[in-house]
């Protein structure tokens, strides 16, 4: 039960009447806004059927599908690279050795505070003259991996810290070394704790991949751009693309919250869950907001 429900008295007849009025007024206002927007679109000829019909043609769909494939390929590669690197960074940040700890901390703090686009420009413009000229795909994937592994490191760290300390203590008590106890006991449980957050991070990886537009890697945004060069259907193309992104990301976010609900039910009795909420409560939405 949330606070909201407690704050209201059960509405009486007068309040109900007021709510009904407000509902009607709000409904009319919203309808008016939508009508105005559609009128604006219509007056400028953007609603004409021949500007939208192409998107039902197989050629257009195929063209954009290639872009979507590129998007998914880049996102998957970033995930495959960034998840393990993030986990390793988290372990390094928690390690006992002061040097590795401060190096990992510096990396994480630096790459969480530098915009991805700036880093992409480094790979696009600054490094090639120095002799480091990656293929286009990697000019997109490497910077995304560098940034998101720093963000994921913090997610993993939150998971490890949220785990009951007794787990690590028990592991050392039966004679496992530090790395053994991390690998065999702590990490597997910590990862399970943060699975919903990891799924949610896929959303930001997918959003990051739109920067393929900048490096001219043919993912969905760039393909859309290529399409508009020929068709000049800019509004339509990007509305279609935006809807595709929103649908995919919405699906991923729903999956993440479903996983979270399931876990909360499953481990209501386990102490770790409350702590995790406290720690990941301050998980940085910047990661998801970005791009």
């Amino acid at each position: 039960m949330t606070v909201n429900r407690v704050l209201f008295d059960a509405p009486g007849p007068k309040a109900l009447q007021r709510t009904r009025y407000a509902t009607v007024v709000a409904g009319i206002a919203i309808a008016a806004v939508i009508a105005l927007a559609l009128k604006q679109f219509g007056e400028n000829g953007q609603l004409a059927g021949d500007r939208w019909q192409p998107f039902a043609q197989i050629g257009y769909i195929k063209f954009l599908w290639t872009g979507l494939e590129g998007t998914l390929k880049a996102t998957a590669m970033c995930a495959v690279l960034a998840f393990p690197i993030g986990a390793i960074l988290a372990l390094l940040r928690l390690a006992r050795n002061r040097v590795t700890r401060s190096l990992a901390t510096a990396y994480i703090e630096l790459f969480r505070a530098v915009p991805l686009l700036l880093l992409i420009y480094v790979f696009l413009l600054a490094l090639p003259p120095q002799g480091i000229n990656l293929p286009i795909f990697w000019k997109l994937v490497v910077p995304i991996t560098m940034v998101s592994s720093a963000i994921l490191a913090e997610v993993f760290r939150a998971g490890i810290l949220a785990l009951d300390r007794g787990q690590g203590e028990a592991a050392s008590a039966i004679g496992l070394t530090y790395w053994q106890s991390m690998r065999i006991v702590v990490l597997p449980q910590a990862i399970r704790l943060v699975v919903p957050t990891l799924v949610a991070q896929l959303v930001s990886l997918l959003k990051d991949s739109t920067l393929g537009y900048v490096v001219s890697y043919p993912e969905l945004m760039k393909q859309g751009n290529n399409l508009t060069v020929y068709t000049h259907l800019l509004v339509q193309t990007y509305v279609v693309i935006a809807v595709v992104y929103v649908l995919i990301n919405f699906g991923l976010s729903q999956l993440a919250s479903a996983l979270e609900r399931r876990m909360r039910r499953a481990r209501r009795s386990v102490r770790g869950a409350d702590v995790l909420e406290e720690v990941t409560g301050e998980e940085r939405p910047s990661a998801t907001l970005l791009h």
């Binding site: 959303v203 997918l206 959003k207 739109t210 920067l211 537009y213 945004m221 509004v235 990007y238 509305v239 693309i241 935006a242 992104y245 929103v246 990301n249 919405f250 976010s253 998801t288 907001l289 970005l290 791009h291």
Partner: peptide, 12 residues
């Protein structure tokens, strides 16, 4: 707005 990539929004 949580799910649309900012770049797509900017271009639109």
């Amino acid at each position: 707005f949580r799910n649309i990539p900012l770049l797509a929004l900017l271009i639109l």
